[in-house]
Nucleic acid binder design. Structure first.
Lengths: 190, 190
DNA sequence: GGTTATTGATTGACGAGTCAATAAAAAGGC
DNA sequence: GCCTTTTTATTGACTCGTCAATCAATAACC
């Protein structure tokens, strides 16, 4: 009983299912069939719409990156100029970006980016966006904005890993750690 | 022409080959055959000595952890009391721990630890060791030694990820970033 | 009748783990 | 010191499962 105009619906379902499955199984060893089953369709259809497994993963990665971008834009728009750096940190650990599923998916993307050029490029784009946001936010507030931004990003990456492996660390805790560093970097000793 | 007493030699060769292969192929999709070939033996022999793929990986992980432990112990022994935290940082980015191969292998272990209980336990042991070293080193020098240690570890993890994905970041750079944070955490503003 | 949606069945490759067979060294008996 | 037996080392060939990708077939829609 095929209805027309299914393509966007199916694609959306697959992307969601991919993130969920990746988050649940916690490894890259997720089969197209598993994803398709969770999305309520046959694996053949998933192949039909995406062409291959890699492209399914890339679509999921793009989605996660886009979600983060939206979150960051929202936080930045609502933030006072001197609060922009904190806004970026908040975005990183916002509920839409810091769920167990998404975190676990991130991990797999890190691995994928080591070998898949497209994945690497996506990651780099995300990196340079967050970096430029932070550099901009830190200009005039940290001694070396570039350096401080780089350090903060590394710290955030590390907090993600720890969230992936450790007990379900509360977002607030991660935000607090990152904020503390931010404040020492901007010279405000607590 | 079997010679006796080969077991330790073969095991060593497999462990080395695993790290090398993991580092080169940059993914967990490394076959036992690939490893065995690099180690100069048949895959059957690898199975014979280790029992299975997981145990091969775990042995490689144990090795890397042990190498780090040795490095850390050496650095700590040679460090003045007020330099102990820096010694730990130096150990993390020492040549024996921070080669491209080892870094890439680390990444795969992070992923493995998400699903493999034994791998997770190994990681946790490593974590608690480095944490207690850092807490000890920071006692009386940072406002909240535990918190500061936690943050430093997260930062180090993040620097590893970035090294795995980015251009071959120089160890000195990573050490500098970590040391900078260390100094702000211990109250010495540069 | 052409397009879109959909799937079950199939193909083809690859990889973990097993096993039987071979060969050399060691151990034991005489 | 020889012959036998056991233990250790080693591999090629094989089994069994899995999975990505394809395809032919079916069905609704226009």
């Amino acid at each position: 009983m095929p209805k027309l105009g299914m393509e966007p619906i199916r694609r959306e379902a697959i992307v969601r299912a991919t993130i969920a499955e990746l988050g649940q199984s916690r490894s890259l060893d997720v089969t197209v069939s598993q994803i398709a089953k969770r999305a309520g369709m046959s694996s053949a259809l998933a192949h039909h719409y995406f062409g291959g497994k890699d492209q399914i993963f890339l679509a999921a990665m793009r989605r996660i990156l886009a979600d983060f971008g939206a979150e960051a834009r929202a936080e930045l728009k609502a933030a006072a100029p001197e609060d922009r750096a904190r806004a970026v940190i908040r975005a990183c650990f916002a509920p839409s970006c810091f769920t167990p599923d998404v975190i676990a998916a991130w991990m797999t993307f890190y691995v994928m980016a080591q070998t898949n050029q497209d994945a690497l490029r996506l990651w780099q784009i995300y990196q340079s966006r967050i970096r430029s946001n932070l550099v901009h936010a830190l200009k005039g507030r940290a001694e070396d904005p570039r350096d401080a931004a780089e350090t903060l990003i590394a710290l955030i990456d590390g907090l993600y890993i720890r969230a992936a492996l450790g007990a379900p660390e509360q977002p607030e805790l991660a935000v607090r750690q990152a904020t503390t560093i931010l404040e020492t970097l901007t010279g405000r000793r607590s």
